[in-house]
């Protein structure tokens, strides 16, 4: 048993070391593809830890990614990069905390609609502010960050997020989230402080999204609200988590990798029909793989 655990740790360490060395071995294009994968792995894993377990389906991922992006766009001229990258998740956490307190009393479809509306509202507020206050609709990001730096930052984020989710899944907190998802009334009457658990985990996973948005923004030289707050991101993250399966710590990551590759292929091959292809993916995944890839693996094992 201990040997098995040791082997697993060994494999994980070697895998992380190999992944860290990837930028030394591959082309700039491949690095950028890996950057997208790592970003979506963190986003889908964080999303699934809250929304997958509690079944409070959030469509606000784009809002928190955008908050991270805009934190960099606004502050990067004035503060050193590490400071900006520390502030971004803090801003995401604070905003999600406030939103969580006021909205996590909503349940079911109301929460879904609210989060979607919220993401749109934040985007429109930023547009309004930029037009009326700063008299500009776009910002330039002048940060000297190489693809390798962005890659390593996102790799570190993904490792911490997956390890954190893996660890919390086995802890009372991860279990409490599942109980809330199964029956919130039971959770309340069995002693779970459901409001606190939901708000803190929603805020913490939103902070991860803002951090990813902040790191990703270093790729851009130019950002406007439609790029920063792209609502498609919310749906892509959701479908990745569904494809991978939300019941396991690794599931969302396994969903993110093939879909990033697929979206890359589709947007390269059919740039004008990308939306149609994306819609078809949604339909097929939801229809044929309700348990996700991990559910499929379980079914194979049972055979």
């Amino acid at each position: 048993m201990a040997d098995k655990a040791l082997v697993r740790w060994g494999i994980a360490v070697v895998a992380i070391a190999v992944l860290a060395a990837v930028p030394l071995m591959v082309s700039a294009y491949t690095v950028s593809l890996f950057i997208s994968m790592l970003a979506y792995i963190s986003l889908a894993t964080a999303w699934a830890f809250f929304s997958g377990r509690t079944r409070y389906i959030s469509l606000a991922t784009a809002a928190f990614v955008g908050i991270g992006t805009y934190t960099v766009a606004v502050l990067s001229d004035h503060l050193p990069l590490p400071v900006v990258l520390a502030i971004a998740p803090a801003v995401g956490f604070a905003i999600a905390f406030g939103i969580g307190l006021s909205t996590l009393r909503l349940s079911g479809v109301y929460f879904v609609i609210f989060t979607f509306g919220l993401a749109e509202l934040i985007k429109q507020l930023v547009i309004w502010f930029e037009i009326n206050q700063t008299k500009t609709l776009a910002r330039y990001i002048f940060v000297n960050a190489s693809g390798t730096l962005i890659y390593e930052l996102l790799l570190a984020t993904a490792v911490v997020v997956i390890a954190g989710v893996w660890w919390l899944s086995r802890a009372p907190l991860g279990y409490a989230l599942r109980v809330i998802g199964e029956d919130e009334m039971v959770a309340r009457h069995a002693g779970i402080d459901t409001t606190r658990v939901k708000v803190l985990v929603f805020a913490a996973t939103s902070a991860v999204m803002s951090l990813v948005g902040a790191i990703l923004s270093l790729r851009y030289t130019y950002v406007d609200p439609n790029i920063g707050f792209n609502s498609l991101v919310s749906f892509q993250v959701l479908i990745m988590a569904l494809l991978g399966g939300i019941g396991r710590p690794w599931g969302p990551a396994l969903g993110a990798i093939p879909l990033v590759l697929l979206f890359e292929l589709l947007s390269g091959t059919f740039p004008h029909h990308f939306g149609i292809a994306l819609g078809l993916c949604f339909v097929v995944i939801v229809y044929y793989l309700p348990g996700g890839v991990m559910g499929l693996v379980d079914r194979w094992r049972e055979w």
Binding site: R178, V179, V186, A190
Partner: peptide, 18 residues
């Protein structure tokens, strides 16, 4: 009110943990 996706043990554990 049963938690359908959880085992009997998990259904009861919530009370002892929280």
């Amino acid at each position: 009110r049963i938690l359908p996706g959880m085992t009997t043990r998990e259904n009861v554990l919530v009370g002892r943990l929280f």
